[in-house]
Design a protein around this nucleic acid. Sequence first.
RNA 1: UUGGACGUCGGCAAGCGGUAAGCCACCGGGUUUUGAUCCCGGCAUUCGCAGGUUCGAAUCCUGCCGUCCAAGCCA
Length: 572
Amino acid sequence: MAKENIVIEEESEKGKKGPDFIRQIINHDLETGKNGTRVHTRFPPEPNGYLHIGHAKSICLNFGIAEDYEGGKCNLRFDDTNPEKEETEYVESIIRDIEWLGFDLTDRIYYASDYFDQFYEYALQLIRAGKAYVDSLSAEEIREYRGTPTTPGKNSPYRDRSIEENLEMLENMKNGKYKDGEHIVRAKIDMSHVNMNMRDPAIYRIKNAAHHRTGDKWHIYPMYDFAHGYEDAIEGITHSICTLEFENHRPLYDWFLDNVTAPCHPQQIEFARLNLTNTVMSKRYLLELVSSGLVDGWDDPRMPTISGLRRKGVTPSAVRRFAKEIGVSKVNSLIDMDFFDFIIREELNETADRVMAVLDPLKVVITNWEEGKTEMVEAENNPQAEDAGFRDVPFSGELYIEREDFMEEPPKKYFRLAPGREVRLKHAYFITCNEVVKDSEGKIVEIRCTYDPETKGGNAPDGRKVKGTLHWVSAEHAVNAQVRLYEPLFTLEDMADMEEGKEYKDYLNKESLTILENCKVEPSLAEAIPGHPYQFLRKGYFSADSRHHSKDKPVFNRVVALKDTWAKIQNK
RNA sequence: UUGGACGUCGGCAAGCGGUAAGCCACCGGGUUUUGAUCCCGGCAUUCGCAGGUUCGAAUCCUGCCGUCCAAGCCA
């Protein structure tokens, strides 16, 4: 029965990739009937910032598991136990991002704050059992009493308060009779435990602060270690998946569940969080970048946030593919940004319509073209998708080509336009360069060419070949656009390798954003919709900016450049 | 320093005692109206190191080395 539910994992022509270690554990639990046939995970963000690509990995893992198993479920649960950092703006952005990734949240949104009464009940149970107490040491004293990894801590003088006194004080704490930090509830475990987390960890702290959902009802708020396992148990979670830094907390997770009458005991499993080259992934840093104005908001396309990726033009399926391809393990790893770029290209290659856009325009005059004439040429929308169809693009006697596609003195292997050379204008005609016009400074301002009327569509009836094919835009019909190019936000490949005394801001890449103001694009692009990616032929994938793009002033973001073999050859 | 976790190609990652999958990157070649895509070929005699068990070890055992996590009333 349960066996049919086991994930075997997809098989490619060669070799097969087995299920990741977490699915292996789940498979095993299904075989032994540990949780019956149930598989129930959760994604538990604290609503104190926007989600980033690292969260996407976790979301895809947790929601992906729910999708993989028959009857599987995954809850989104806001771990909102600290009112001082949390805001509804964040909960809204989190819901938006998860749904954008393509996961269904219907009936699956939960809040830890809904369980505050239950947590309180559990705290009472612990106190009545003599397993928790109210401590009145200051924060500083508690730190001193805790000891160090090599030296044991010592008991607080308040550790043996009577159960009655503890109960009364807890009640007073709850009712706001004390100031912040005056008292604290602690579990009574073992002050000399080798695992520091077990040295009487905090359960409740006093915070006379309003909560984004419970308002002024509470004056005490539960700590993560105390609350998290209960949140899971209340929701009937079977596998509580978290990142590696919580490995040291697992004994505590189990302790809290074991010492109370909890509905079930979920299993905590840890995996390695995602790290990407040249980027930071900590919420603190990302928040700082936003609030200090170093970037243009949480959705700045340079940000590793899901909203940043979305604004840049990355598609949800590319993110999901990426999450799947990088795998899940317990090895601290650093994924090359190139790999993400590769996945995005592979995805967009299939789906993005091809259009022509000249980023750095150089005027071309066709000297033998009939004055004032415009001709429509047929252009294929996407050679990768048969039913993508064709469109008509205006061609005329004055065009723009890419400045880098012409060289007066071309090096070897350069097979674009040069004096006396013939190239093809994509979808249109062969042209030959006859003349170069320069300004007083010697800068090339225009080149003059002739076209061969016999080559309409891009083929010569005499069978003559041409080495280069260029993209172009008719000057008269072109729309001016702004194009934004992005590079990594940081210059250090592994941001964990920052030098002593330096901070992440010292590694900010000053060239992370390049704004091109005078780009010439096909007229149809004025109607582009943000989130819909295009391939600007020979240049890369681009998408209209959701904040700045308008019909009157088109603005495009580069999602990712095309692979550029020529650039590689040049750099040799 | 103590405890925990982890070490398979430049980056990921399969492998689970029967003789090193795959992907990216990189290098070569072919096709091409995108120097894109696509195709073909190359890329770990060896799995952190050293011993041991075994007919047989990346897989089991022992020791060592390296990296990460932990001394918040953050999550």
